[in-house]
Nucleic acid binder design. Structure first.
Lengths: 140, 140
DNA sequence: GATATTTACTTGTATACGCAAGTATATATC
DNA sequence: GATATATACTTGCGTATACAAGTAAATATC
């Protein structure tokens, strides 16, 4: 019975927890017609200082491939949730920006998001949550 | 600039971290010809007391659908990594069990897994990792 | 003990990605 | 300033997974 390292357990439990949380959260977000990935995009756009970001930056931030971002953003553009902004300095880029509609949708969705995440992790105290978040920043 | 709840941040950072970790770990496991999902199955089977578990139990544990498990296990059976065990008490179930080959493969893969996870989360002390894992158990 | 319901699993189909290759533009090198 | 290389993105294709529906076996109800 070879003993298992803490790091292994950490990574496994982290993966299992994230899987559970993202499923639950995804179910709630679907009431707003969006996926968790779409929410993460909106969240990033809303919190980004310049409000219009290159797709590649989105991809890196939310851990998706560039092609994944293309296909994720494409229907969001059709639905007028985000809009394309050209970068005069670099014609290769097409920047992504939350539209007015997108801002409204994000506002509604984030209210749900706050509520459900609080339900899900409410068994942890705020300081416990804060500590974990702080420690996450040190990983990798 | 509405302030964001810690629970939201927790869930988002957790998802992003898990995504990063599972990609890195997956890359390393691919050297053994297996995916992270397959590793999780082997890990669960190896740690399960009775060594032969119903598919539904696997599904619940690793957070996949029953059909997902069917399609995940199927090639593992073909490759003789796991074997089917009938349950005399319940003919609906087909239990899954690590084969000798599977045990050997898991032994090799887990060595890599321990190594890479230690690299990835090595910036956290063991007690920090332990604390987080303990807190994970309280969520949901 | 027959019938209805539930459970464990499989299969068809749809979706959400990733990777590889392609295109256009920018940057570096000479 | 021409050519090579790198970057940002898109598209074709393959894979992993979920959901819905189907099947077979177990359990509950009468």
């Amino acid at each position: 019975m070879s003993s298992e390292s803490i790091s292994s357990v950490f990574v496994i439990k982290n993966a299992l927890l994230a899987s559970k949380l993202s499923k639950r959260v995804g179910n709630h977000l679907s009431a707003h017609g969006i996926s968790l990935a779409e929410y993460l995009v909106m969240h990033y756009l809303d919190n980004s200082p310049q409000k219009a970001v290159p797709r590649i930056e989105l991809a890196e931030h939310i851990g998706m491939s560039a092609s994944g971002i293309t296909r994720l953003i494409s229907p969001m553009e059709k639905n007028k949730i985000v809009e394309k902004v050209v970068n005069p300095r670099d014609a290769r880029q097409s920047l992504v920006k939350l539209s007015k509609t997108g801002q409204r949708l994000y506002g509604e969705a984030s209210t749900s998001f706050e509520y459900i995440t609080n339900e899900l992790v409410g068994n942890l105290s705020l300081s416990q949550q804060e500590k974990i978040v702080a420690l996450y920043a040190k990983v990798i």
